[in-house]
Design a protein around this nucleic acid. Sequence first.
DNA 1: CTCGCGACTGACACGGCCGTCAGCGGGAAT
DNA 2: ATTCCCGCTGACGGCCGTGTCAGTCGCGAG
Lengths: 232, 232
Amino acid sequence: MSSAPKSRPRRAKPPRAPKARRPALEPRPKAERRAPVPKAERRQQISSAARGLFARRGYHLTTIDDIVAQAGVARGTFYLYFEDKRAIFSDLIDRFGSQLAVAIVRIVTDDPTRSVGAQIHENIRRIIGTCLAERAMTKILFTDAVGIDPLFDRKLASFYENMVLLLVETLKDGQKLGIVADGEPRVLAYMALGALKELLYQAVTLGLAEESAEVLTQQIYAFLCDGCLRVR
Amino acid sequence: MSSAPKSRPRRAKPPRAPKARRPALEPRPKAERRAPVPKAERRQQISSAARGLFARRGYHLTTIDDIVAQAGVARGTFYLYFEDKRAIFSDLIDRFGSQLAVAIVRIVTDDPTRSVGAQIHENIRRIIGTCLAERAMTKILFTDAVGIDPLFDRKLASFYENMVLLLVETLKDGQKLGIVADGEPRVLAYMALGALKELLYQAVTLGLAEESAEVLTQQIYAFLCDGCLRVR
DNA sequence: CTCGCGACTGACACGGCCGTCAGCGGGAAT
DNA sequence: ATTCCCGCTGACGGCCGTGTCAGTCGCGAG
């Protein structure tokens, strides 16, 4: 396809010439005060508002004005806690990414107390649990996280690539031990991850009850073990 | 989570008061003319430029100015062929959606000349072929199609839902015949579709050669038949 | 030749959203 | 009581992308 060498960073922040503004003429009507609140709590308040809006309307359709209105603070307050919209989004994704990362535990083959199957089962259970507990973030991660800006995209892609790499290594080990089917490990990894992602996304979007987590875990485990086709 | 009753259509197009502008003072320097081109061809030219940019930078980072620059036409020309950015995007997605739709053929169980397995195989082969032939559109469909605006999202969701429904019906039939594994058909559909989607996306993004289509078809078919785990 | 048509052009007005900053006021410190 | 501090406020300047439309030009018909 055609090529466009134009780069356009789009995230440049020019210092903006400082200009004398409103030389204290009008006494400013009144500033509707608000009970002072601990710093961390206020940050959380803004963060939650943003999370809800991102999940409901998507990143691009959400404006700073929307966020501050939802959080019930003034526009300026937002900028006391976050650099810009991208920053709060990034913060949200980072936190959720960490949550997800701790849910994934490397599989060991020489532990007599936990079979490989049980370990896989546990991993799936924890991932599904995390996503169902954080529906808004799951939806955001799967739908809006890409296309924010090239830099952020790269960060996200490398996070995902790390997960794929971990899985690929694990699959290779498994193939040596004969407990993973033959085939290009990377392809297997994509398919397994894709199946899980789609299931998670739909579970979260359709508002599946948290109780169904165990059923989903069973189903995907069965799918990974035996597929779904029984032709011939 | 919290609720925001505010709706904000965001796609309103106010008539914009017609104002006398530039009363023919300056004779306008010169309008760099361009060889006239058949209508359909010009439209195609703009469409291709947009497709490339959407695939490379994403919908939101692509501006009309980018598109016309890439297409080598003036800003006004764009609006002679498309209502706005959303329209050209929608057009692109619609066309690709149709291509994809014809690649999917309903499975029949009473055809003695084509086994069910072969039909599934054919479907997968055609889908992968279509996506590898239209890499840009595949990338766009999987990454940018969601979050453009609520209306468009709904259209897309219903297209996807139709595919899921078709697959669910097919799976139910298969279960009755004993050629599809037990389990909630909708869940199976999500997992199968998710595996295919992810594989397709990665194949397109990583720039896999068109020749590998057959390998991918084999691998996903094998995955659907037997999964990937051989524990115990 | 010239007239009219219609494709094409690009400067411009407009509006939305962003980031800033002068000022406000409640409470703690003095 | 007075002062100071600091979290918070919200109007404002400005930028950037959009959609328009008056005007230009090439071409075929009269």
